[in-house]
Amino acid sequence: MGELPAYAGLFRMRLVRGLSYRAAAIASSVTQFFWGFMLISVLRAFARSGGSPLDDGQIASYIWLQQAFLVLGAIWFRDGELVRLICSGDAAYELCRPVDLYRFWFARLAGGRLAATALRCLPILAVASFLPEPWRLCLPGSPAVLACFALAMALATVMVVAVSMFSYALTMVTLNTQAGFLFVAPVFELCAGLLVPLPLMPEGVRRVLEVLPFRYAADLPFRIWMGSIGLAELPGLLAAEIAWLAVIVAGGRLALGAALRRAEAVGG
């Protein structure tokens, strides 16, 4: 645990850095409000055709949560500086430091994501919960629900960062700033429920996606908040999530290790 302060320091530095992008945060909140209204309209128009498991208020709530926590869950929200570092070969400096690269980058990426989310989610949550019906974001049913939501969100952060690590490993192999994200991001977003809410997908597709790990990054915490997943179901779901996390982190370590060996072999 002796090296923990190093990771904590890095985490804190990224947090401070992220907070300095005020204008970016305001702009992005505005963008997300727009997206929110648009998506809610589209989904409602579909739902009016009948047979929707979510009513208008639930659709609004799901979408507002989606928008509020977008940069926490979306793979495309990447650390541009790290990508440049990797592509220019300057990541070699990171290898010279006496730290575990996976943990080092994990701290960095988690800090960046949390800072960006902290700035963006509060205005959206605050404003969206005061909108008139049926645009309003519903509030969590009880403090216990809120606590479970927070726990699920924390695990979601770990999930997203762990999955995004594959993208950075891929970047290291391709040495292309975009290649690592172009494929991973759309698939992840679709499977996590960031594109279409999982409950609004066709039954068969929804069942498959609920088994895969991606929905833990967005769909699960949102539905905990909305109360459509009861607290009684949680222990089982979270156990499954943690099992998935173990697999993904182990896989990510292997991928990063392989990418590093390859980079060293090529001399990048």
Partner: peptide, 16 residues
């Protein structure tokens, strides 16, 4: 100005 430190960074959010 880009101030250093967490408190100053938060202050600069409000008033650059």
């Amino acid at each position: 100005k880009r101030p250093a430190g967490l408190v100053a960074a938060a202050a600069a959010l409000v008033r650059p």
